[in-house]
């Protein structure tokens, strides 16, 4: 059985002036960790709010754990955990008081479900008398997750849980998610960090309210059709300009310490021509390789295709 299904969900704001979610359909299997990857404003949060029964869609149907989001919203509210993108716990209550509050609201108690949150709570325990507003970013996220887990939800909704959190805390957080998944909880998570995408079972690349591609991260990467090249030199800015000026280069963009680009017409001859052209200008320390695409590359390719499509 699917834990989450969406069928032709459409949502507009301002009486139809802003299209936030455009005919989106996908399904998440039970026990799966599904990631929605996309930039800010892609419509991720709208989907979360529709699924958590906070927002009504204009069109389409959606279910969570087999319950309809409109008809059975009360049932859904009892079995989901939601962690909104913005930290929204009581800043003037302590860690323990917040946790206690949400436990009570769900008709349970910390003791009753302690095993569910134990792993995370041990990290929070030294700060349990500290007010939530005075916690660090990473600790706030952990507390929010604790509060979302306190009633043993079947489905967990995490809207950009790691935005604004340091690298170490982010990694810790994903380790926790993996453990939760192992316990059989279905997790729908959104992020704008592409590197986190590979940690999900399946991902959906989302842009402008539409899902551009949806599959396992490996297959999304495998579906990258072209050869992707990476170059690097000490004069990066000039290198980027030269590449952009070259007629045979389709897309080129900075990716970490390299510049990634694809060619209109690949093939050894063309590659050599380009290589020679670049060597002439940046002879000293040019590094030129073919590289394995990442989710980010896939995303940028889809983005470029969409822009191109709109241009035609």
């Amino acid at each position: 059985m699917n834990a989450i299904t969406l069928e032709h969900i459409t949502k507009t704001y301002n009486k139809g002036a802003v299209l936030a979610v455009d005919d989106v359909s996908f399904a998440v299997e039970k026990g799966e960790m599904f990631g929605i990857i996309g930039p800010d404003g892609a419509g991720k949060t709208s989907i979360f709010r529709i699924l958590t029964t906070l927002l009504l869609a204009d069109k389409g149907t959606a279910t969570v754990a087999g319950y309809d989001v409109i008809k059975d919203f009360q049932k859904i509210r009892g079995i989901i955990g939601y962690m909104p993108g913005r930290f929204s716990l009581y800043q003037d209550l302590t860690v323990e008081e917040n946790l206690n509050f949400f436990a009570t609201v769900f008709g349970t108690s910390i003791d009753e479900n302690y095993d569910q949150i134990k792993d995370i709570y041990v990290m929070l325990e030294p700060f349990k008398d500290r007010r939530a507003g005075k916690l660090s970013g990473g600790m706030k996220q952990k507390l929010a997750l604790c509060c979302a887990l306190i009633h043993k939800p079947e489905v967990l909704f995490l809207d950009e849980p790691t935005t604004g959190v340091d690298v170490v805390s982010r990694r810790e957080f994903w380790d926790i998610l993996k453990r939760l998944k192992a316990e059989g909880i279905t997790i729908l998570v959104s992020t704008s960090y592409m590197d986190e995408a590979t940690l999900c079972d399946r991902i959906a690349l989302m842009l402008g309210g539409k899902i551009l591609s949806s599959d396992t991260p490996e297959r999304v990467i495998k579906s990258y059709p072209e050869k992707l090249f990476a170059v690097k030199s000490s004069t990066m800015h000039a290198l980027l300009k030269d590449l952009r000026a070259n007629e045979n280069v389709v897309q080129c963009y900075a990716a970490g310490e390299y510049i990634h680009f694809t060619l209109k017409e690949a093939g050894e001859a063309n590659e050599n021509i380009l290589l020679k052209f670049l060597r002439d200008k940046h002879e000293k320390d040019l590094i030129f390789t073919e590289t394995v695409p990442t989710v980010e590359d896939c995303f940028i390719r889809l983005l470029g295709k969409q822009d191109g499509g709109a241009g035609n």
Partner: peptide
Amino acid sequence: EIGTIEQINVTPL
């Protein structure tokens, strides 16, 4: 404003 009302709205409260 803080967003806690959203959190409460997703609970069976």
